[in-house]
Design a protein around this nucleic acid. Structure first.
Lengths: 161, 161
DNA sequence: TATTGTTATACTCTATAACTATA
DNA sequence: TATAGTTATAGAGTATAACAATA
């Protein structure tokens, strides 16, 4: 949830942990707000990207890769399918499995979402030079790896956001 | 076709925004878990620190500083008061106001919480040298400031987690 | 009439587990 | 019997707004 440290302006306790929590919350809120223009949330964005890369995978396979439980996958895919962005196709070899595929409309929306992600990234780093941004990314990446975080898998997809 | 950046392990979607969101979520979850030993959450930790710094402020004043709405303040203070960590005293000049004060037990618990925060910070930065940590903090601080984030005020206290 | 703290209500989000249809 | 997907339910956490006491 939240890490909060010192309240007022009197005790500016500076810690990497607090800054990460504070910035992480802020940036993900901003990103969520931006994606809302397309009426998708970050989870669905992650799903669309995953589906594009590996079309036809089952809901469970996608959910496992992204750490999204099955019952939530249903709702998310329902929404995307209802808007014609994605379609479920029954696997002819195993009729229990429904592969999820991107439609042309879904592909198009994904492009818009990627453009939004790009703009968001530029906005987040607006104050940094290119080399500073690289340095920051390298440091963050090392911290993330040292804690076993998988690149591209957001721990929040599993529970809250 | 596309610059596919799938979420799997194949194409690491590297962006400062995603790393911040990912790490922020991870570290705040860890911190929350650590504080649970003391049966307080990060919000209450922030409150205790605030109260220590400025004893006797009204619930609303504290809530405003920390961006916690009044109705939630009630529950949080109830809990702390029920455990003897904090006490409410009616303001003799304005009987509507209840100043919140730290008890000796609360002061003691706050010390333990601060020790936990320190250990948490060391854990987060375990992979970094002292200079690297300083560099990371400086970069994060600049990014935070460029977006108008107040030091010590976590945006998550106001709403979700 | 406005303000502090409180309580009550409703809403959103979530996991859990029961259920179906296939295998 | 086990598995993919679905549905139903209940729980946690939240904001909103109504409320009582005081100013």
């Amino acid at each position: 949830m939240t890490t909060a440290l010192p309240p007022g302006e009197d005790t500016p306790f500076a810690s990497v942990g607090f800054l990460l929590s504070q910035l992480g919350h802020y940036t993900s809120r901003r990103f969520t707000a931006r994606l809302a223009e397309l009426k998708i949330d970050p989870r669905q964005f992650a799903m669309l990207r995953h589906i594009e890369a590996q079309q036809g995978r089952s809901q469970q396979a996608i959910g496992q890769a992204l750490q999204i439980p099955p019952s939530r996958m249903v709702v998310l895919v329902d929404d995307l399918e209802g808007r014609g962005l994605v379609e479920r196709r029954v696997d002819p070899h195993d009729r229990r499995i429904k592969g999820v595929h991107l439609t042309p409309a879904g592909r198009e929306l994904l492009q818009s979402a990627l453009a939004i992600a790009k703009a968001h990234e530029a906005d987040v780093c607006t104050e940094l030079s290119a080399t500073e941004r690289d340095a920051l990314m390298a440091l963050l990446d090392r911290v993330a790896r040292s804690h076993g975080l998988l690149s591209g898998v957001h721990p929040g997809l599993r529970e809250d956001c």
